[in-house]
Amino acid sequence: MIKVENLTKQFKKNVVLKNISLSIEQNEVIVVIGPSGGGKSTFLRCLNSLEKPTFGKIYFNDLDINDKNNDINKIREKISMVFQQFNLFPHKTALENIILAPIKLNIMNIEEATKRGIELLDLVGLSDKANEYPKNLSGGQKQRVAIARSLAMQPDVILFDEPTSALDPEMIKEVLDVMKGLVGKVTMIVVTHEMNFAKEVGTRLLFLDSGEVIEDSKPLAFFNDPQTDRAKSFLDKIL
């Protein structure tokens, strides 16, 4: 579904990603972990072309997403993203946040989109917050609305960029629970520091450090028996 070939990303002279190649299959739940500054977020942001690779190519369903001949906006309709800072639209209500894109991009008419939007709010447990503005929602509620918004486009892939890092501890679970509910329905790529989530839910784990994929394995195998010294020292520090 997604194919990454020799992805290298530099900011000026600073090499953030070094020659990463891998492919991602449908309905995988990939957790990306590693130390801060290791390139996790940049890797994720390259997958929907929010960052352009310095070298290398990324294919989504065999389309080169950075090829000018392919409409990146059409591709992005199928690759949603959930951000650390939620990035809800503050001038729209929770429901409007969810239905804006499907309506304005002519995917659904207003009635369909509203019906689907209400279903999605129900799915994330916020039916009663449809008409609230983001400023009246807690962090966890905002992030759940953001997940509903990303689902509204019926994407094939959702990229989660540290979705719980900006949340108070007691709100992390409600967001992770919503994410667990999506397993098997959509391909998920999750940059996270939630090791229990990675262990429990991930079908595959990427350990990124200094811009390289150091380990690409099953989560349980990674946590129980890391193959590299760098992974071992990382796990020593966090567990």
Binding site: N73, E77, S80, M81, F83, N87, F89, L100, A101, K104
Partner: peptide, 18 residues
């Protein structure tokens, strides 16, 4: 306006103008 707003809009498939 926070850069994240542009990124969220782009990630949903909106072009720059929209």
């Amino acid at each position: 306006v926070d850069k994240g707003q542009f990124e969220a809009a782009s990630s949903l498939g909106f072009d720059y103008k929209t």
